[in-house]
Design a protein around this nucleic acid. Sequence first.
DNA 1: GTCTATATATTGATAGAC
DNA 2: GTCTATCAATATATAGAC
Lengths: 208, 208
Amino acid sequence: MTQPTTRERIVEAVSGLLHAQGFPGTSLAAVQERAEVHGGSIYHFFRSKERLLEATLERYSELLDPRIMDPAFAGSEDPIERVFRVLDRYRASLLETDFALGCPIGNLALEMVDCGPEVRRRLAEDFELWARRIEGCLEAAADRLPADVDRGRLAGFVLAVMEGAVLLARGHRDIAPFDGAVAQLRDYFGRLAPTPNRKTDPRNGRKR
Amino acid sequence: MTQPTTRERIVEAVSGLLHAQGFPGTSLAAVQERAEVHGGSIYHFFRSKERLLEATLERYSELLDPRIMDPAFAGSEDPIERVFRVLDRYRASLLETDFALGCPIGNLALEMVDCGPEVRRRLAEDFELWARRIEGCLEAAADRLPADVDRGRLAGFVLAVMEGAVLLARGHRDIAPFDGAVAQLRDYFGRLAPTPNRKTDPRNGRKR
DNA sequence: GTCTATATATTGATAGAC
DNA sequence: GTCTATCAATATATAGAC
């Protein structure tokens, strides 16, 4: 409830602009306007545009749970269904923004070819964090998956499918490729966890 | 064997630069240097940078078969194995270029938010062409896939996985996420086409 | 800490001689 | 068709008053 600091306003502005227009497309002039700060204030807090990116990547990792995962998980108690609720949030974001906003980390991963190790580290960290949340769902559904399935690797696969599906939908400006990829992923999960039959399984529905 | 025209040299130069540095990152000054043309020559052939991009996207679609698909398909006669040979070529490209070069179309799909309908159309066309080649492999292996599998949709899924896997590997600067995603896709195909057992299947090995 | 003013470089694009 | 010269806009970054 406290007033955001100038530094926070700057990061918040970059956060939105970066998502919509990428790193080269985000000019500091636009950041000034959006954050309602003037010229040199940005450089008072950040030595360079790349340092500003680093702070924003850290912010993204802070926002992952409250903005993405928690709302998605709230939609279902079933752990595998929760995975698909997460994907559905990216679907909704694509439609709401007319394919302008995909995954901010995914965009940056392709954009930032030449960048310092700190940016690289934070990008990888954000991907890891996302995958670990999905892995948590898979662990919760471990009894419904084949024992020999590597759940960490499967979580990474879900992330790859999400990023690829977002990319295709944005390229086509059409949600159909996204829906097709998600449907195929569902088919895969269906073959991994045949007939969950949650209603009769005593392990499900437990509250504590 | 004929000498490349000036126009062809320009497109060739853009082709490489675009792949490595993206659209905003590809300056016309760099194009001049690489194509060994001077200033206004580019504007003699192309009205704008975006027109130049359109010509390059058309070039990419021309190169898909000779540069990507044909060499990959030459590695195996088995249609499903051919799908994975294609993915393996992207893997090799990532390693050879130290993760600098991924999929040129995938990069552009995320970069080109504001662009004319012609660019959009050609991007979608290039994706479609890629997926249709994979779909051709799946059709050739139709007898080893469940009858109810939508092969066009599965081909789009393979493309999504490839794009996502390339994106993750570039973000991590590590081939492990790519390998993990491909291994998981192999697992999926294994569950779709259990024990191909090509050796004893009379349908395989036919030459005409 | 915040502001104005500005330095320096580079961008896409144009004009016109040859 | 190819060249030189250059425009106008914009980029990141800096200096210094307040």
